[in-house]
C-alpha cells in the first residue's frame, strides 16, 4: 500500500517536474555550447505562468476547431503519459498498447494540423503541409521500432515489453529500437536537424508556424503538451536503453528509478547537444534523416524476427 502511494507520488513528481526541466536543460546545454549563460532554470515556468495570466487574441476566421484542438491535444498527451511506461515506476493502467499509442499520437496530430489550417493564414497552411509530410514519413520508423520490441516479448503491451526478461539478442533489439524511437521523436517533436524551434522566420518553421495564431492560455496548453509529449517520447527511448542494460546488470528498483530520471535528462542533454552542433537540414534532405531512423528500426526488426525462425 505504502509502496503504491510512493510510486504514485513519484510519478506525479516526474510528470510535473520533468517537462519544464527538460526544456531548460536543452536551452542550458545549447547556451553553454555557445558560451552563453542561458536563461534561468525556471524560465519555462516563468513563461508558462505569464501565458496563463495573459489575455487571448483570436482571429475572427477561427472556428471551434482551433481552441478545441488545444484542449484535446493536452488531454491526449496526458493520457499517453498516464498509460505508457515512460518511467519505470508508472502506476499500471491497461491501454499501454503500441498501436493505440501510435494512433493517439496521430489523433493529436490530426487536430493540430486542422488547428493550423483553421486561421486561413499561409504560414499555418504551409507548416501543416510540412508537418503532415514529416510525420507521414516517420510513421513507419516509429511503428516498426515499437513492433520490433514487441515481437520478442510476444505482446503489444509496452509494460509487458519492458518487463520481459532480456538476453543478449534482445539487448541489441532494445538498443536499436531505442535509437529508432529517439531519431523519430526528433522528427515528431520538430527538433533540430529537421526544424529549428528558435528560428525567427515563419517560412522556415514547421512546428512554430503551426501555432503562430495561438496566444494566452491556448498557447500555454500547446506549450505544456509539447513539453509533456517530449518527456514521454524521450522517456520511452530511455526505457529501451535501460532495458538493454538490464541484461548485464541486475538493477534494484531504486536504481531503476534513478536511471529512468537520468536517462530522460541525458537524452534531453543530447538533444541540446545536437541542437548546438548541427544546422537545420535543407527541407529536401529531411527524408534522408528519416531514413536513418527507419534503418535503425528495420535493423531492430530483422534481429527480432531472426530469433527462433526457420529459413525456408
Amino acid at each position: 500500500m505504502i509502496s503504491l502511494v510512493i510510486s504514485w507520488l513519484n510519478f506525479f513528481l516526474a510528470i510535473l517536474l520533468l517537462p519544464p526541466l527538460i526544456l531548460s536543460l536543452i536551452r542550458k546545454t545549447k547556451a553553454r555550447l555557445q558560451n552563453r549563460v542561458g536563461p534561468s532554470w525556471f524560465q519555462p515556468i516563468y513563461d508558462w505562468s505569464k501565458l496563463c495570466r495573459k489575455d487571448e487574441t483570436l482571429s475572427s476566421t477561427l472556428t471551434w476547431i482551433f481552441r478545441g484542438s488545444a484542449a484535446l491535444n493536452f488531454i491526449l498527451v496526458l493520457l499517453l503519459a498516464l498509460f505508457l511506461p515512460w518511467i519505470s515506476f508508472k502506476p499500471s493502467f491497461t491501454g499501454d498498447d503500441i498501436f493505440l499509442a501510435i494512433y493517439v499520437l496521430a489523433l493529436a496530430r490530426f487536430f493540430s494540423l486542422l488547428a493550423s489550417l483553421d486561421s486561413g493564414s499561409a504560414f499555418g497552411g504551409f507548416a501543416a503541409s510540412r508537418e503532415a509530410t514529416l510525420s507521414l514519413l516517420v510513421e513507419p520508423a516509429f511503428m516498426l521500432a515499437l513492433v520490433a520490441l514487441g515481437i520478442n516479448a510476444r505482446s503489444s503491451s509496452l509494460s509487458a515489453i519492458f518487463s520481459y526478461s532480456t538476453d543478449a539478442n534482445n539487448q541489441v533489439v532494445c538498443f536499436l529500437a531505442g535509437t529508432g524511437i529517439l531519431l523519430s521523436s526528433l522528427v515528431e517533436l520538430s527538433r533540430m536537424p529537421i526544424d529549428d524551434p528558435t528560428t525567427h522566420l515563419e517560412l522556415t518553421m514547421v512546428h512554430e508556424a503551426m501555432i503562430l495564431e495561438a496566444s494566452g492560455r491556448n498557447l500555454l496548453l500547446v506549450e505544456v503538451s509539447y513539453a509533456l509529449k517530449m518527456t514521454v517520447l524521450l522517456g520511452l527511448s530511455a526505457q529501451c536503453f535501460i532495458h538493454a542494460l538490464q541484461a548485464n546488470i541486475v538493477c534494484p528498483k531504486l536504481l531503476l528509478v534513478i536511471l529512468s530520471y537520468l536517462g530522460i535528462l541525458g537524452l534531453a542533454a543530447l538533444v541540446g547537444l545536437i541542437e548546438g552542433l548541427t544546422v537545420k537540414l535543407h527541407w529536401r534532405k529531411d527524408p534522408e534523416f528519416i531514413a536513418y531512423a527507419l534503418t535503425m528500426s528495420l535493423l531492430a526488426c530483422f534481429i527480432s524476427i531472426g530469433q527462433g525462425a526457420t529459413f525456408k
Binding site: 495573459k54 487571448e56 483570436l58 482571429s59 476566421t61 481552441r67 488545444a70 484542449a71 493564414s121 491556448n218
Partner: peptide
C-alpha cells in the same frame, strides 16, 4: 475548454 480556456479575456482580431 469551459473553465480554463474560456475563463481568460478574449480579444477578436484578424489573422496574423
Amino acid at each position: 475548454y469551459a473553465f480554463f480556456l474560456n475563463a481568460s479575456k478574449i480579444r477578436m482580431f484578424n489573422t496574423w
